[in-house]
Design a protein around this nucleic acid. Structure first.
Lengths: 109, 109
DNA sequence: ATATTATTCAACTATATGGTTGAATATTCA
DNA sequence: TGAATATTCAACCATATAGTTGAATAATAT
């Protein structure tokens, strides 16, 4: 059983790398094989494969064998967890914006 | 000039640690001095101070000297960036949920 | 069966991270 | 001014991460 907190660790750690964010962006448009993904970067195949393992551990992507390729797709469930984590703070900053607006409107009277 | 991408690196890297997420949670309720924060963890003062430096680099918190203490507050701007990053994907998964609902409602006819 | 293609694994290196301890700095109190 | 309090800095250690290269495995094509 992987703790909720540990899942968040993995999700945010995955998102902390620009290559991995870029991979996510690319496969969110269209599923791609590991090889197709690797072509976009000046990294070795193995390095890209490792990035995909990090994304898999965080459950941000799923791999599926199709013939001799592995096809990679985004798996939005984990991103949803990150989103729900931030949601609490979204409420906070929206409150603050509201107070700011209220304050400004009083100033103008 | 710090790149947008690098800012996201710092924000997500900050959020990838449970102690730092907990610090954020605590100070989002009430601003606290470094010392008050440090008391909550079985870590040295210096370790907590380092965590706060990581959060500062990501602009998730701000420190302000008040007498001989440093008072720490959340600074929601950076969390807003993370939130906007995830927003794109939120649209994606909401679309998928909608398609799922549509599919299920047709099944029930 | 063998060769080709796609991917992963293992071993290694360099750098980053999270922690410690002890000294250094800043501010306040007596 | 000197002592006490709050925080940071510097040096160090252990572990994790991101990258490499070369060998190993899996599936397909000949």
């Amino acid at each position: 059983m992987v703790e909720y907190s540990e899942r968040l660790d993995h999700i945010f750690a995955s998102l902390a790398d620009p290559t991995r964010r870029d991979i996510l962006r690319r496969i969110s448009r269209k599923e791609l094989s590991v090889g197709e993904i690797a072509k976009s970067y000046e990294l070795t195949f193995a390095a890209v494969s490792k990035h995909l393992q990090v994304l898999e551990r965080a459950k941000l992507v799923k791999k599926e064998r199709r013939g001799r390729e592995q096809v990679v797709r985004v798996s939005l469930r984990a991103l949803g967890e990150a989103d729900r984590y931030l949601e609490r703070y979204r409420v906070l900053w929206e409150e603050r914006l509201d107070r700011l607006e209220e304050y400004l409107s009083k100033e103008n009277k």
